[in-house]
Amino acid sequence: MVKSRADARIRHPRHERRGEARLPAAVATLIAIALYVALPQQLLVAPRYVLPVLELLLLVPLIAINPKRLTRQTKTFRVLSLALVLLIAGGNLTALGILVHELVHAEVKDGPSLLVAALQVWLTNIIVFGLAYWELDRGGPVARTQSSRSELPLADFRFSQDENDDAVEEVADGASKACDWVPTLVDYLYISVTNSTAFSPTDTMPLSTRAKILMSIESVAALVTSLLVIARAVSILH
């Protein structure tokens, strides 16, 4: 009997998986922090390095708990990871609000720097909401690989892999039921990118109320950045 590619992939129980790599999330977080540090001072509500230092203080213990692979999770780990995402999101959305206020109520002459600041806010928005989806969906990155599907909380997102089990073989073999596929950070960053560019979900649908609220906030922030901030900056350049 010939085994399918999906059968060949399932060799260990779910709880014996190595877990998702720590590096991508750490790099994404550091990029978001760096983008914030590079913002113009008038968009910051506190001294430039106060918020980044707090974020780094939260990131260090998270890396210490799971330095290479995300396999261990405690209540403290969850609180720290969610607090880090909330802190980055709060700082970036505040910067966006100040940027809009400056455009509407202040006389802005430096168009090029405004364009760069808008791009920084937009990129940070993509990263931080991608991290938020990654942290929340199905209990977070640790639970998704270290718990059986029956033990996972309800999904916040429905990926195409979750419903491809009845497709042609080369597609069905990569489905969630066939090979125990689980989303990683890249999948959630993709959701964030498409939501920030199309202002709506594309191939991945939000299921929970919190996912819909988060995607709505991200879409509105991206829309404001794209239509108001960038449009005004281009007009200033002319």
Rank of each mutant, 00 (worst) to 15 (best):
M215D: 05
R17K: 11
P67F: 09
C179I: 14
I63L: 12
R48F: 00
A25P: 01
E20A: 15
L228R: 03
C179M: 09
V171F: 09
G91Q: 05
D203K: 00
P141G: 06
A175C: 14
R138A: 13
L39Y: 06
T145G: 13
L84A: 05
D165L: 04
L84F: 07
E135G: 09
R14M: 14
R78L: 09
I63N: 00
I126V: 13
V60P: 02
Q120F: 11
L99G: 10
S176D: 13
A32C: 13
A83F: 12
E107K: 03
V128T: 12
L237P: 08
Q42H: 14
T194L: 05
S216W: 03
R138D: 00
A117M: 05
S176V: 04
L154E: 12
F77R: 00
R149H: 00
L207E: 04
L154A: 15
T124R: 07
S226D: 02
A118Y: 02
L237I: 15
D110Q: 13
T194S: 06
V100K: 00
E135T: 05
T184K: 08
P183D: 05
K177F: 07
L123C: 04
V234K: 04
V45Q: 00
I191V: 12
L80M: 08
P47G: 15
K177R: 14
H105M: 14
T204I: 06
A38I: 02
T197F: 04
L223C: 07
L114G: 06
W122K: 01
Y133I: 04
V108H: 09
L84E: 04
L86F: 10
I126E: 07
E102G: 11
M1A: 14
L30P: 03
A132S: 01
T225E: 14
D137I: 04
A6G: 06
A143G: 13
S208Y: 08
A95T: 02
D166G: 04
E163Y: 01
V108T: 13
S4A: 12
G174N: 15
L96K: 05
L57M: 11
R69D: 12
I88E: 06
A95Q: 03
K3V: 12
G139F: 01
T74P: 07
K177T: 12
V186I: 10
I236R: 10
H101Q: 10
L185K: 02
Q41D: 13
L35P: 13
S235M: 02
P183W: 14
L62Q: 03
L131W: 06
I10D: 02
T29E: 03
L80H: 00
L58G: 00
V37G: 08
P183C: 03
A221E: 11
V234N: 07
G139Y: 03
G97M: 03
